[in-house]
């Protein structure tokens, strides 16, 4: 028993000393390959995935982002939506929730292809030696609401379409303005989304807005880490259902010195991660669960990621020192 415990402790110590950044890079790369090219290998994980595995990447995708079927379902004519179709909406949502609670927002930080692309753009900027931008706190406070607004619109507009208030050319409204629609199919050589649809005024406006947002996305992601995630309605939806999730980010406020190291490395500029010493479940609505904060925390056990209550990555002094030494010698 004791030997088992010490062996478990040895494994834990090894995990806690992991070079999280490179582990994450390879995992993200694998997930990207799976979700962007998996379709070529007949992988199909369904259409209820809590990440941007864009359906417009028709050939390569291994799954479909839940937002597309959700908007489709909600844009059905009301008599149908509020009768038999409501069952499919509910079962669809439940499937989505099941996928989600497995990884919580870890889907964003480790799996989402659009998130990975943003990290690659960030890496490119870093290599070019251009510094990144940050929001001021007042900007942050305002902008952090945008994703909820987008989520509300993403539900209300399809309902309006189903009710006959809006044109079908607006469907699916979020997908039309989502940069993933243009960026992800590009990776399988499909550039057909880079077009303006002149078939109607609505379609023209929507596609023009979409392509403008893609232009902004490329610039934004270049100067700002995880630029789009800040506005992502999927992220908002995640947060609303994150309570039963298995993967959790926990903080022991008593051990925190508020040194701000976690805040320093946070791609999403979440200040609470450093300053909030009362909340145990510290995952904020903007969090992408990249767990960089855990890796950059020098306080033993102050931050940890748990899966179903079992700690899987914990902040340790030894891990911190190992990572910082690596950074000092060959950090990028």
């Amino acid at each position: 028993m004791k030997q088992n415990n010490s062996r478990l402790q040895a494994v834990r110590d090894a995990v806690n000393r992991v070079d999280l950044n490179s582990f994450r890079f390879w995992l993200q790369l694998a997930a990207f390959a799976l979700f962007v090219y998996g379709g070529y290998f007949a992988i199909d994980l369904g259409s209820r995935l809590p990440l941007f595995s864009c359906a417009y990447n028709d050939e390569g995708r291994a799954a479909i982002c839940y937002l597309l079927p959700l908007q489709h379902q909600l844009s059905q004519p009301w008599p149908r939506l509020f009768s038999i179709a409501s069952i499919t909406v509910i079962t669809g949502f439940l499937t989505f929730v099941l996928w989600f609670i497995f990884l919580n927002k870890g889907w964003c930080g480790y799996v989402c292809p659009l998130g990975t692309i943003q990290d690659w753009i960030t890496a490119l900027r870093r290599r070019l030696g251009i510094r990144y931008s940050r929001y001021s706190q007042s900007q942050f406070a305002q902008l952090t609401r945008v994703k909820y607004l987008l989520l509300a619109l993403m539900i209300l507009i399809p309902l309006g379409i189903g009710g006959g208030f809006f044109s079908h050319d607006m469907s699916p409204p979020f997908c039309l303005i989502c940069p993933a629609r243009m960026v992800l199919p590009m990776f399988t050589g499909d550039v057909s989304q880079f077009t303006i649809d002149f078939s109607s005024k609505t379609a023209m406006i929507m596609t023009a807005v979409g392509i403008s947002i893609t232009g902004l996305f490329l610039v934004g992601a270049f100067v700002k880490k995880r630029f789009f995630c800040f506005f992502c309605p999927m992220s908002a939806l995640h947060y609303l259902i994150s309570k039963p999730a298995l993967l959790k980010l926990k903080k022991d406020g008593n051990k925190c010195t508020r040194c701000g190291d976690c805040y320093r490395v946070c791609d999403m500029e979440i200040k609470e991660i450093a300053d909030d010493v009362k909340t145990v479940n510290i995952m904020a609505d903007d969090c992408i669960m990249c767990l960089k904060c855990v890796a950059s925390c020098p306080e033993e056990g102050a931050l940890k990621a748990t899966f179903a209550g079992i700690p899987i990555l914990e902040s340790t002094e030894a891990g911190f020192i190992k990572r910082i030494n690596k950074g000092c010698s060959d950090g990028k």
Binding site: F198, S199, I211, G215, V219
Partner: peptide
């Protein structure tokens, strides 16, 4: 018949350059 790459890339590039 109704999709235009020229306009799409044009607008995208314009926004890209402008915001950049």
């Amino acid at each position: 018949d109704y999709m235009s790459y020229a306009w799409g890339l044009g607008i995208g590039l314009l926004i890209f350059l402008f915001s950049g």
